[in-house]
Amino acid sequence: MSSEFLTDLHCSDSIKAAAAVHETANAIRQQISKVIVGQDAILDQILLSMFCGGHTLVEGVPGLAKTLIISTVAKTLSLGFSRIQFTPDLMPSDVTGSEVIQEDKQTGMRNLHFVKGPVFANVILADEINRTPPKTQAALLEAMQEGQVTVGGYTHALPKPFFVLATQNPIEQEGTYPLPEAQLDRFMFLVRIGYPTEIQELEIVKRTTSGLQSEPTPVIGAPECLRIQQLVRDIPVADHVVQYALRLVRSTRLDERSPKFIRDYVSWGAGPRASQFLILAAKAKALISGDHHVMPHHLHAVVLPVMRHRIMLNFNAQADGIDTDRLVGDLIKNTPIDSAA
């Protein structure tokens, strides 16, 4: 990427900076496409989450390149990357780090010394996060929410920017520990990866069975990531768009004003964090699309990954084969953009 765009990212002119973010996103997509075939929507959702400073849970069956996508994104952003393979015997200290006794060779004094765990990186790949017990899953809670870990009564700040990108397999439940709702709610997005098309799979087979392997070139680094996060928050959003987002979220909560299909199929609706993430993600979507303010179609582009893991369905929904994606789609159709409509 040219130094001109990197310079524009840091300029005070919001129009130039927004255009630079748009070009940056295109450059990142181009580099990722050297390794990943297709999955454009998935890659955009992961980038949106990172540009918002959020965390992403990636869900898909084995063999869909979940791990490869995340590691490739980290390479294009030139960020510190750490992979944690979650297993049933993984302990919290294996994630956050621990204190060890260290002897000073000059004085002979022994002191506790904190050894940082793999969570001290910019991008954390929490691979198969649902294979480890809740005690270890909870070790990520403070890191994800506060950007710090506490060990032995001392608080240690994590590097900035900090992103947790976790993966899980939805079809294999034996020997797994489903993430509790409190942990799920801390993920900004739940991204679901589907099978590639026939043409895409043909290209995947050709690339992975030949001797030619491409590597992505870093596009931006940590300072530029932090700058983009600030630019996202600076994007203006009109009050009627915020009110529309609130109507979408609040319609999932059970009361007499809820749509009938919500009352029939939902046991628990989305909380305030959904409203916050919906607006923040829409701002990021507008920015990487080259727009200077948020419009309803930006909300529509991000409402599924924001909402799908924050709505708890009841037995009726399971019996009728209704999932959260269908409910959110019906919600968009039944919720007017204009409150007077």
Rank of each mutant, 00 (worst) to 15 (best):
V232G: 00
Y244N: 03
P236A: 13
F189V: 07
S258K: 06
R250C: 13
E224V: 05
L190S: 02
L231G: 03
L190H: 02
C225F: 05
L184G: 01
V249G: 01
E198M: 14
T208R: 14
L212R: 08
V219H: 00
D239L: 15
I193G: 03
S210Q: 08
G194L: 11
L231Y: 02
E256M: 06
P259E: 08
L212V: 14
Q183F: 13
E198C: 11
T197G: 06
T217P: 04
Q200A: 11
P218L: 12
A238D: 14
Q243N: 15
L190G: 00
P236I: 14
M188N: 02
K260Y: 09
V219E: 01
Y244S: 02
A238S: 14
Q183S: 07
V266W: 02
P218A: 14
G211F: 14
L248R: 01
A182V: 08
R247H: 12
L190A: 03
R247T: 05
R253A: 10
E256I: 11
P259G: 08
R250I: 13
T209V: 10
D255P: 02
V219C: 03
A222D: 09
L184K: 01
G194C: 11
P259C: 08
F189P: 04
V237F: 10
E203T: 09
W268Q: 07
I199H: 03
V249L: 03
V219I: 08
R233F: 04
R247Y: 07
S258E: 08
I220K: 01
P218G: 15
R207L: 12
R186Q: 07
Q230R: 06
E224F: 04
K206Q: 08
D239T: 14
S214C: 13
Q243H: 13
P223R: 06
V232R: 00
T252K: 04
F261I: 09
D185Y: 05
P196R: 05
P259F: 00
D234W: 05
V191N: 04
G221Y: 05
T209G: 08
L212T: 09
Y265G: 00
K206F: 06
S267T: 15
S258T: 15
P196T: 08
E256T: 07
P216K: 01
D255N: 15
L246N: 07
I228F: 02
Q183M: 15
V237Q: 10
Y265D: 03
I235C: 01
S210G: 15
S210M: 10
L254K: 09
V205A: 09
T208Y: 12
V237T: 13
D239F: 11
R207A: 06
R263N: 09
S251P: 03
V191H: 02
S267W: 09
L184Q: 02
Y195A: 14
Q243G: 11
E215V: 15
P223V: 13
K206P: 01
I262G: 01
Q243E: 14
V191E: 01
V242T: 12
Q230W: 05
R207V: 11
S214E: 15
Y244H: 03
V219K: 03
Q213H: 14
I235T: 00
E203K: 10
R207D: 07
Q230A: 15
S251E: 03
E201A: 10
T252V: 08
Q230S: 12
P218D: 09
W268A: 11
V237A: 15
T217E: 13
R207G: 02
R186M: 07
P236V: 14
D185M: 03
I199L: 10
